Computed example of a mutant assay.
Amino acid sequence: MQPFGESRSLTLGVELELQLVNTHDYDLAPYADEMLRLMQRLDLPGAVVPEMTSSMIEVSTGICESAAHVLGELTQLRDGLVRCADKLNIAVVGGGTHPFQQWHQQRIYDRPRFRELSELYGYLSKQFTVFGQHVHLGCPSADAALLMLHRMSRYIPHCIALSASSPFVQGQDTQFDSARLNSVSAFPMSGRAPYTLAWTQFEAFFERATRTGVVRSMKDFYWDIRPKPEYGTIEIRVFDTPLTVERAAALAGFVQSLAAWFVHDEPFQPQEDDYLVYTYNRFQACRFGLEAVYVDPVSGRHLPLRDHLLQTLRQLAGHARHLGAGPAIQALAEDVELGTNDARWLRQRQAQERLLAEVVRQGAQRFAARR
């Protein structure tokens, strides 16, 4: 394993996996190559790369200091994507799943790693046509990264509920707010990182894992949060891609504010027993979103996740203001009060339109910030 790199504490980097759809019936369209070619001509921050199947594209910011910085870079990337998509007569859409695409129709993007994964995982590779937001958080040392990872794990349900945007799969309402994570869970190296607070112990775990031949690099772990030694970060991977870049930046502001609370107030020490309720809390958030039940890992008390989220957002408010994320945290709190997330918006549009293609069309307009 490569050494843990240097990064400034609490810096951010955001990746968004996005849908490419045609403007005829709003199904997924295999235009990744064409989009990459056009995007390479633009002077934009961050990077634009292909993803597992050819109807996906991923954009990422550079190293950002704040949620506002993230929003500035994502807005430039979004505007570039929309201009290029217009030239190709396609559209770009957020959301954690495409509501009615058929996985067997997807094409694996022609890249050695994607071909290898397709040969290893079979049909799961095409079913992995799902779309997430990943948030990288800068950590000053390897041990600090592990401490941050395990503290952040208590708040994975909160991240899922705030970002949930994948209620529909293959034309059906799954009754989940985040069905995307069910696709991720099918992979053998998914779930959570092993509990250790010492990087030397983590390195020993990684050495044992690579010696078995089960994994070759950190990329082979599909954990909800994983260390990224080459960047000096931890990477939170449970967010569905939001429908707007504003929501994506607000979620990054939530992560940064939460981390600042951990660093400056040290509200608790993570324990291995935290993970006794981890899978249950994760399922509740995926299934019910903001209406989930949250089990406190210390007391075992059951309470509405929405109440715990509002309590958390109040605790973070001072740190958020100091980081310039106050408006983002306030916007999230207002949505939590109303029980609103992107999954609810998608269901409301479908209830009104009764046509998923029209829901996707409106989602494309929303992503592009067009009325």
Rank of each mutant, 00 (worst) to 15 (best):
V295T: 07
R301V: 10
I329E: 04
L290C: 09
L316R: 06
L309H: 12
L313G: 09
V293C: 12
R314M: 12
A333Y: 00
L338Y: 00
A320M: 13
D296S: 04
R301N: 04
P327Y: 01
Q330Y: 03
A328T: 00
L338E: 08
L290H: 11
D307M: 11
Q330P: 07
T312P: 07
H308I: 00
P304G: 06
L323W: 02
G300C: 08
G318C: 09
G324P: 04
E291P: 05
Q330G: 13
L305S: 07
V336P: 09
E291A: 13
H302G: 06
Q330S: 07
Q311M: 10
Q315S: 04
G339R: 04
P297W: 04
L303G: 05
G324Q: 13
P297A: 02
H319P: 09
E337D: 03
V293A: 06
P327A: 02
L290S: 08
R321A: 14
R314Y: 11
H302K: 12
A328W: 05
V295P: 07
L303W: 01
L313H: 10
G300H: 09
D307H: 13
E334W: 01
L313I: 14
G326L: 04
H319S: 14
A292W: 01
G324W: 14
L305I: 05
A333N: 03
H322M: 12
H302V: 01
A320D: 12
